[in-house]
């Protein structure tokens, strides 16, 4: 099976790629998993653990916590998978669950307070259109992509979390707002600021 082989090499394709398990195959695995089939759950783990771990790693600041939350997601999956109704693609659903779990972890660390508190910091908005093309606009080499990832990892939490939810988990603003308990507009502003900050960081680096 293609998906399996690519996993053995440690490469996890993004959902929707040709090597991903698709359609009836995945459906049957999910159905079996919903019937508490350990093998099917294992299959799901093999397919999606790297992707989930990736999300956790971006969301949380240590590898240890990311590993913890990844474990948690898959442990809870035995039960939570029953609530998957097929209305959205499974990987997307799983990443949403994982995102929630990460936010819970972040919240626990803050003793139950919100991960991001609205209005805690002024979100400046550039009023006029910027004539400068974005410094992120070019096609990137692998090394430069690594730099971008590194810069994302170094973003403050309130920028990093929405940014990762948007561009890694591909959640909508509404979904992010719901997960974080924020207003949609505020999420939009945070994502915008996150990108500005990212540009600033990368601009520094290239100089």
């Amino acid at each position: 099976m293609d998906a399996k082989r690519s996993n053995a090499k440690g490469l996890q394709p993004r959902e929707g790629k040709a090597t991903q398990m698709e359609g009836p195959d995945l459906e049957s695995v999910i159905a079996r998993a919903q019937g508490h089939d350990a093998e099917a759950l294992g299959e799901i783990y093999r397919l999606y653990a790297p992707r989930v771990f990736g999300l956790c790693r971006y969301m949380l600041d240590s590898r240890e916590s990311a590993e913890d939350v990844t474990s948690e997601v898959f442990l809870k999956l035995q039960r939570s998978i029953e609530s998957y109704d097929g209305s959205i693609p499974f990987p997307r659903w799983l990443l949403r669950v994982a995102g929630n779990q990460c936010i819970d972890a972040l919240r626990r660390r803050k003793r139950g307070r919100q991960v991001i508190v609205e209005g805690e910091e002024e979100v400046a908005v550039m009023e006029a259109a910027s004539p400068e093309p974005s410094p992120l606009g070019a096609v990137l080499s692998a090394e430069e992509r690594a730099q971008v990832r590194d810069a994302i990892a170094r973003l403050p939490e309130n920028y990093r979390v929405p940014l990762v939810l948007r561009y890694y988990s591909e959640l909508s603003y509404d979904e992010i707002a719901q997960q974080l308990g924020l207003q949609r507009n505020y999420v939009a502003a945070l994502i915008f600021r996150a990108k500005q900050e990212l540009r600033r960081k990368l601009g520094h680096r290239s100089k």
């Binding site: 990736g54 004539p131 093309p133 690594a146």
Partner: peptide
């Protein structure tokens, strides 16, 4: 122009994030 630049930026973000963090290859 701005639109193109921002689209390119989103693509860059998506591409960069598409590769998992180094450790993720073997959780």
């Amino acid at each position: 122009q701005l639109l193109d630049a921002l689209r390119a930026e989103n693509r860059v973000l998506g591409e960069s994030l598409q590769e998992l963090p180094e450790e993720a290859a073997s959780p």
